[in-house]
Write a protein that binds this DNA or RNA. Structure first.
Lengths: 220, 220
DNA sequence: ACCTGAACACCGTTCAAGT
DNA sequence: ACCTGAACACCGTTCAAGT
């Protein structure tokens, strides 16, 4: 069930899978996925590179485990209220967690994972939707839509550098040839703002919640 | 304005920036971003690795240009109809194009680009929304939301292997400890379906369009 | 049982040299 | 002007060896 290569018992260096994963997540948060190499990670931990292969069969396996652990870190404390309020809170906290740990988004791109840690939030979301009265299928579809939205926004939406880039984006848009890009040139200011604006997340989220609410009203 | 290293005139090998980019996009579609190395690309073109650096200053610059060209390939023929129908068509075609060229999604993740080719669809979307009567700011926000949704779904939604994986996902979900994951275990079938279901894209899209329609009705 | 250096097949890019 | 091999500083991983 858990096909890992791991020393399990007393390690001479005090190394554990957990310590390795924590160092990996730190490295990820600091310098991004590109900097997360087995050699660099080993150096950070003060061990030989090959030592890591005693704990994880491959980099692939290490990254999978890192996602699981990272997902667990993004725990969301439940709140009370209507199902819509509860779900809205969960999604916003989810989004906040991913914004704080952008490496997890990067990691998740190439590797769709279904590990227990990664499914904790799914469970919480399903509970809210089922309590609200959604059928199993509608609850699953509804949560999945929100999940994809959160990840999509975290990956392709405005990042923390957005404010710096906004002016630059506006300048580029404003200097496009206005014969071919008339709508963009005339709305350069607004388009640059939309690309940098984080409140856009709430806009889309509320539209999706509107849609779910209507769906629930239709088939109660 | 166009700070590229390029031979511009007669090349001895018949090489052009365009030919290189086409080969890069082919490689991307076939074997993914991981396989797209300067060495492999040069080999594919039958030239020395360093020859490429006569046309692009760095791999970074080559990838930026490849996105621009890739985005142009995903052209969407305009249709007539209501603004909602037109916009819906544009988004669905956009989605289809990205599904056919998943490498572009991969590329775009790490590098938010604002090049002319990448902005053609933005211009088309803005035109539809402005014609419909949206103010500049609302049009920019509306298009941006849809854009992020499309990319998010393309990156994190079900891929072409979804059908194969569905059974596997269901099995994993069904064997989770039901004390901690009661809602997921009881809805394992439905959740697995939601993760694999491509029609989910339409569901979220229609919810977002609903939201835009309501916004337009509110402030005409 | 746990740890590791050397070696292999890969990267992107600089530099100096070839025509 | 255009092209390129050698070299450098990196990768992940296998293998054989060390304690």
């Amino acid at each position: 069930v858990n096909p890992q290569a791991a020393p399990a018992s007393g390690s001479r260096l005090g190394l554990t899978r957990e310590r390795i994963l924590e160092a990996a997540l730190d490295l990820l948060d600091q310098d991004g996925l590109g900097a997360l190499s087995m050699r660099r990670l080993a150096e950070e931990l003060g061990v030989g590179t090959m030592t890591l292969y005693g704990y994880f069969r491959s980099k692939e396996e290490l990254l999978d485990a890192a996602i699981d652990m990272g997902a667990r870190r993004i725990g969301v404390a439940p709140v009370s209220g209507s199902w819509r309020e509860r779900l809205r809170h969960l999604v916003l906290e989810f989004r906040r967690g991913l914004a704080e740990h952008p490496g997890i988004v990067e990691l998740r791109l190439a590797r769709p994972v279904i590990t227990p840690g990664a499914l904790e939030l799914t469970e919480a979301g399903m509970e809210i939707l089922r309590d609200a009265g959604f059928a199993k299928r509608d609850a699953a579809r509804g949560y999945r839509t929100l999940f994809v939205y959160v990840f999509g926004f975290s990956a392709f939406g405005p990042g923390p550098t957005a404010a710096d880039e906004r002016e630059q984006v506006r300048d580029v848009l404003a200097t496009l040839p206005s014969e071919r890009y008339p709508r963009l040139v005339e709305a350069a200011e607004e388009a640059a703002e939309a690309m940098a604006d984080d409140t856009l997340f709430d806009f889309g989220l509320d539209r999706l919640l509107d849609g779910l609410e209507r769906e629930l009203a239709r088939a109660p």
